[in-house]
Design a binder for these strands. Structure first.
Length: 644
RNA sequence: GCCCACGUAGCUCAGUCGGUAGAGCACUUCCUUGGUAAGGAAGAGGUCAACGGUUCGAAUCCGUUCGUGGGCUCCA
C-alpha cells in the first residue's frame, strides 16, 4: 500500500506503526520533533497503524499549536501518574490542556502544598527519565466502568456513564491508566519542558454546588528554551502588574475602611483618567453623539419595570429615604431611555446617540475583585443608540469603527466574538436573526474576523465582545456592543414613521473602553507605567544641577505651563543623578536639566525617558518637542469637532 | 459566594520555641552645591488589620469579621 507522508510516497507494509512510516519520510531531526500524525481532521497516535482509508499523513510537530496541545495533555497525564504514586488516595477527575499549559483536578482529603508540587514535579521528571510508552487501549464502556469502579475512581465512572457510548479508550503510562480520547505523545521521554505553577480550588464540572476539587496548574512547552521564554514573560508581567505600579507611581489606592472594589484616585491617577475622559468626549462629539447625564440613584419601581429588580437584584445596592426605596444604578440605560421618551420622536430624529461617563455600582462577589480590573464602583463610557431597524447595521458599523480607531491609538490588537441567542432569552426568532445578522454584517463589512460564541448572548439580545490584547498578549474584555429588543418594548419607546404611525425603535448598548477603571489597569500594564506623552500626568520635569539655578527653573516652569505642558520642577537639594533616577522611576517622558550653561544660553538639556540624550536645546524648541509628542492621537481621523 | 494562602512603619520585607518590635527605601532636620539611575549624619515614625478567646504573658496559638492574593463561578 502506498501512502503520501509529508508529501512523499511511502510504501507501507502490514503491521507498521505511524512512527515507522514517518521515520522513512522525515529527517532524524524532524522525526525527533514529531508528536502525533494527522490524517484529514483526525490526529493519530504514532504507535497506531495506518487507519483504513487514510491516504495522506501529515506530521504534527512539537512546536505547532496542535503539537503543543498534545504535549500539554500528555503532561497532564504524567502529572496525574505522579500524584497517584505519591498520594494514592487521591481520586483523578479531568486534566485537559489549556492556553500555555494544562491542569488536572484531583479529589483529595487536603489541599496540595507548594512542597507537594515540588515532590510531584520531581516524580514527573523521574518518569520522563524512564521514557515510558503511552499505550492506548480500546475497551467497552462496561469493561472500563468495572475497571475504574474497582479502583475507586468514582469521577471516571461518572464520566463514562455520562458519555453514553459503547466503546471508550484509555491510555496507560507507567502504572497509571486514564480514561482519555487521546492522542498522546508516544513516550514520556518527549515531555522535557514543563513546570507546575500553582494549586487552586475548582468545582467539579465548574458548578459551585459540586464539591471543591484540588486543581494543579502547570505549563508545558516543546523545548526548555520555550519554557524559559514563557516563564520570563510571566516575570515581566509581574513587574508590570498595575497594582504594583499604581502604588509605585502614586496613581490610586484601595482602603479597607472604604470597602472592597472601591478605588481612590490620587492626583496623578485622577489626572490620567481626566485626560482619557476628555479624549473620549471629543471623540464622541466627532461621531455625532450627544452628552446626557442621569442620577446615581433611581426609584426602585423603575428597576422593577426594567426587569433588573427580578434579574439583577443580588448585584445591586439599594438605599431608602422618606420611605421610598431607591436602587443605585448598575447600568445607565434607564435614564437614557427616559430622556428619549421625554418627547415625541420623529423618524427624522433617529438615530439618537446618548453618551454618558456613567458611574455604576455592582455588588460583585467578594472573590472576584481584582485591582482595577474588577471593582464594584466604576465609570462606564456608556452610550445607547436608539435607531430605526433599517439603521441598525450602519450604527453597529459605526461603533465597531469607533472601537478600532480607539484601539489603534493605544496600540492594542483585538479580537471580536459574536455571542448568539442563549436558551433563556426573550424576543422572536426573527428579531434575533435580524440582529445577529446585523452584527455579523458589520464585522464582515469591516473585514474583521470573529469567533462565534454560541448561546452566550445576553437574555435580551446578541452581542459583539471585543477583547484587546496587551503587550504581553493577555486578553481583556473591554468594548461590547449589545442589541436590545426588550427595553424598548418594556419602556414603550417609539418614533413616528414616515407613514404617520408609531414604530418601535431598536436600542444598542455599547461601551468602547468598557470601564475607565479597567481600561486604566490595562493601560498601565500595556505601557508598563510609561504612559505616552499625551496621557502622562507629568510630561516634563525640570531638574536643576544646583540650587543656583532654582530661580531660572521657576521661569522655565512658568513658560512651559503657559504652553500647556504638564511640567513641574525638582529644585530639591539633591544631586542630579538622584533627581534623574527618580524621574526615570516615575516614567516621566522628558527631563529638562538646567545647570549654569543652560541658564546662560536660555536653554535646557533634554533627556528622554529611556535614556536618550537630545542635548542642549533652546527653551522654545524644547517646548515644541514636548508639545509635538503630546498631540499625536487627536490628529487622527482628520475630522473637525468643536469642543472647548 | 466557594477553596487555599496571606495581612508587621508611607513602601518592600525580617521577626527562631509564646517573653509586649527590626532593616532598607521614603519622610524631617543638619552637613554637602554635586552635570544625567541612589552623597553623608542624626531624628521621627508601629494598638503587629479589627474584635473575641486560650495563657502569668500573644505579632506569634484558636475563633469570628474585614481586606488582599491565586483559582473556581460570574463579569466592564
Amino acid at each position: 500500500m502506498q501512502v503520501t507522508v509529508a508529501g512523499q510516497q511511502v510504501s507501507v507494509e502490514a503491521g507498521m506503526s505511524l512512527a515507522d512510516i514517518f521515520k522513512q519520510a522525515l529527517s532524524g531531526k524532524q522525526f525527533k520533533n514529531l508528536v502525533v500524525a494527522r490524517c484529514g481532521e483526525a490526529l493519530l497516535d504514532l504507535t497506531t497503524p495506518v487507519p483504513a482509508g487514510c491516504e495522506t499523513l501529515e506530521p504534527v510537530f512539537a512546536d505547532s499549536p496542535e503539537g503543543l496541545e498534545v504535549i500539554r495533555h500528555s503532561t497532564a497525564h504524567l502529572m496525574a501518574e505522579a500524584v497517584k504514586k505519591l498520594f494514592p488516595t487521591a481520586k483523578v477527575t479531568i486534566g485537559p490542556s489549556v492556553e500555555n499549559g494544562f491542569y488536572y483536578d484531583f479529589d483529595y482529603e487536603r489541599p496540595f502544598t507548594p512542597e507537594d508540587l515540588e515532590a510531584i514535579e520531581a516524580e514527573m521528571v523521574r518518569s520522563v527519565g524512564a521514557d515510558k510508552p503511552f499505550a492506548r487501549a480500546e475497551l467497552t464502556s462496561a469493561e472500563a466502568r468495572a475497571k475504574f469502579a474497582a479502583e475507586g475512581e468514582t469521577y471516571k465512572v461518572e464520566l463514562i456513564d455520562d458519555l453514553g457510548v459503547e466503546q471508550v479508550s484509555t491510555y496507560t503510562q507507567g502504572g497509571f491508566t486514564d480514561l482519555c480520547r487521546g492522542p498522546h505523545v508516544p513516550r514520556t521521554g518527549l515531555l522535557k519542558a514543563f513546570k507546575l505553577t500553582t494549586v487552586a480550588g475548582a468545582y467539579w464540572r465548574g458548578d459551585e454546588k459540586n464539591p471543591m476539587l484540588q486543581r494543579i496548574y502547570g505549563t508545558a512547552w516543546a523545548t526548555p528554551k520555550d519554557l524559559k521564554v514563557y516563564l520570563d514573560r510571566l516575570e515581566e508581567a509581574k513587574k508590570r502588574d498595575h497594582r504594583k505600579l499604581g502604588t509605585a507611581l502614586d496613581l490610586f489606592s484601595f482602603h479597607e475602611d472604604v470597602g472592597g472594589g472601591m478605588v481612590l484616585w490620587h492626583p496623578k491617577g485622577a489626572l490620567v483618567r481626566a485626560i482619557l475622559e476628555d479624549f473620549e468626549r471629543k471623540e464622541h462629539l466627532k461621531r455625532g453623539y450627544q452628552f446626557v447625564q442621569g442620577p446615581l440613584i433611581l426609584r426602585r419601581e423603575l428597576w422593577e419595570k426594567s426587569g433588573h429588580y427580578d434579574n439583577y437584584r443580588e448585584n445591586m445596592y439599594f438605599t431608602e429615604i422618606d420611605e421610598q426605596a431607591y436602587g443605585i444604578k448598575p447600568m445607565n440605560c434607564l435614564s437614557h431611555m427616559l430622556i428619549y421618551k421625554s418627547r415625541l420622536r420623529s423618524y427624522r430624529d433617529l438615530p439618537q446617540r446618548y453618551f454618558e461617563l456613567g458611574v455604576v455600582h455592582r455588588h460583585e462577589k467578594s472573590g472576584v475583585l481584582h485591582g482595577l480590573l474588577r471593582v464594584r464602583s466604576f465609570t462606564q463610557d456608556d452610550a445607547h443608540l436608539i435607531c430605526r431597524p433599517d439603521q441598525l447595521r450602519d450604527e453597529i458599523i459605526g461603533v465597531v469603527k469607533f472601537v478600532r480607531d480607539i484601539m489603534d491609538i493605544f496600540g492594542f490588537d483585538f479580537e471580536a466574538e459574536i455571542s448568539t441567542r442563549p436558551e433563556k432569552s426573550i424576543g422572536s426568532d426573527e428579531d434575533w436573526d435580524r440582529a445577529t445578522d446585523a452584527l455579523k454584517d458589520a464585522l464582515d463589512h469591516m473585514q474583521m474576523p470573529y469567533a462565534i460564541n454560541a448561546g452566550d448572548g445576553a437574555f435580551y439580545g446578541p452581542k459583539i465582545d471585543i477583547k484587546i490584547k496587551d503587550a504581553l498578549e493577555r486578553r481583556w474584555q473591554c468594548a461590547t456592543v449589545q442589541c436590545d429588543f426588550t427595553l424598548p418594548e418594556r419602556f414603550d419607546l417609539s418614533y413616528i414613521g414616515e407613514d404617520g404611525n408609531k414604530h418601535r425603535p431598536v436600542m444598542l448598548h455599547r461601551v468602547i473602553l468598557g470601564s475607565i477603571e479597567r481600561f486604566m489597569g490595562v493601560l498601565i500594564e500595556h505601557f508598563a507605567g510609561a504612559f505616552p506623552v499625551w496621557l502622562a500626568p507629568v510630561q516634563a520635569r525640570i531638574l536643576t544641577v544646583t540650587d543656583a539655578q532654582n530661580g531660572h527653573a521657576e521661569k522655565v516652569l512658568r513658560f512651559l505651563q503657559e504652553k500647556g505642558i504638564r511640567a513641574e520642577a525638582d529644585v530639591r537639594n539633591e544631586k542630579l543623578g538622584y533627581k534623574v533616577r527618580e524621574a526615570q522611576l516615575e516614567r516621566i517622558p522628558y527631563m529638562l536639566v538646567i545647570g549654569d550653561k543652560e541658564v546662560e544660553a536660555d536653554s535646557v538639556n533634554v533627556r528622554v525617558r529611556g535614556g536618550a540624550d537630545i542635548g542642549l536645546v533652546p527653551l522654545d524648541e524644547a517646548a515644541r518637542i514636548v508639545r509635538e509628542a503630546a498631540i499625536e492621537p487627536f490628529k487622527r481621523g482628520g475630522m473637525s469637532y468643536s469642543f472647548s
